[in-house]
Nucleic acid binder design. Structure first.
Lengths: 159, 159
DNA sequence: CGTCATTTAGTTGTGCACAATTTAATTGTG
DNA sequence: CACAATTAAATTGTGCACAACTAAATGACG
């Protein structure tokens, strides 16, 4: 399992840097998206929500959160801002009054056309081959899975 | 999924997922650190600042920011919280009154002992071999470099 | 020397992430 | 049916990231 025979200092330094590298890369993406998304009037998290809606159509807040691993504490104010921007509509479900359905407005649907240009610019900015991106993505998802599993073990009460 | 067609949709989906995977991995690390750092009374960004100080000793805010790629807008309140927690001291430099030197208190120095346990737990949680972590880190740093360079081109006015 | 540009921190405002709590609706069980 | 447990959103509060701005000190240059 974790029996890798390595001195403490190496262990320490290495693991420090993987999370730091990850954090730095994530923030670098954030900066780039901020620039690219600016004339769409979207932040990066808002863009992710729009991607989910463009792909899946109307969804309850809960489902949007499952796609993005976000809870209502993050989504409620974010969706309110998207609603203020006339990109989405929110309405209580008739079948289950607890649920709030998020749907695209005409404006929100129309925005997709302009958003199509975004991914290409981002991908180009990485300078990575598609295969390499794919490979990196696979590793990252595996890492996330491992971390999630470990987090559950760290807090057995909440799992 | 083939690599032959490059319609916008494929392109879109792929690049969407690399940044999303990155974001997810970064947040998964955040969750794990939150748990592990809880009994040190540190958040993850605070932990990074402490790592810098433990490694380099007293530094002006500017230098801390360079190590972590953070500006005073983020660091000032963060350092104020660390000061409130009696982990660091801040004082104006005598040589350059613009500069504020951040230094460890006895308590801050002592905390290092307890922090030594942290990296091991994190590294173990990834379940990755060291070589694999190293490889991933290299790729991420390369990605960050490419994104930074691209960001500069996107905003030529600031470069 | 005086003036202006630069540098360093700090402040303000916006938005996201997340924990904890609240409210309301639904479901399960006796 | 009544009532406890569960579920979905929203709210509250804390902290981080970042842009834009301010204030104060320093440096450059005529």
């Amino acid at each position: 399992m974790t029996t890798t025979p390595v001195p403490d200092d190496d262990f320490l330094r290495l693991d420090q840097q993987i999370c730091f590298s990850l954090n730095a890369a994530s923030r670098a993406f954030g900066s780039l998206y901020r620039v690219v998304l600016k004339d769409l009037g979207l932040t990066y998290p808002q863009y992710l929500v729009m991607l989910v809606l463009w792909e899946h159509g109307d969804l309850p807040v809960k489902k949007v959160g499952e796609h993005l691993r976000l809870d209502s504490g993050t989504l409620s104010p974010l969706l309110k801002r998207l609603e203020t921007a006339s990109l989405v509509r929110r309405e209580r479900s008739a079948l289950d009054e607890r649920s709030v359905l998020v749907g695209l407005t005409g404006e929100g649907t129309a925005l997709r056309e302009r958003a199509l240009r975004v991914p290409r610019r981002i991908a180009a900015a990485t300078g990575f081959e598609l295969a390499e991106i794919e490979d990196l993505r696979t590793r990252l998802d595996r890492l996330t899975g491992a971390l999630d599993a470990a987090a559950l073990e760290e807090t057995p009460g909440s799992g």
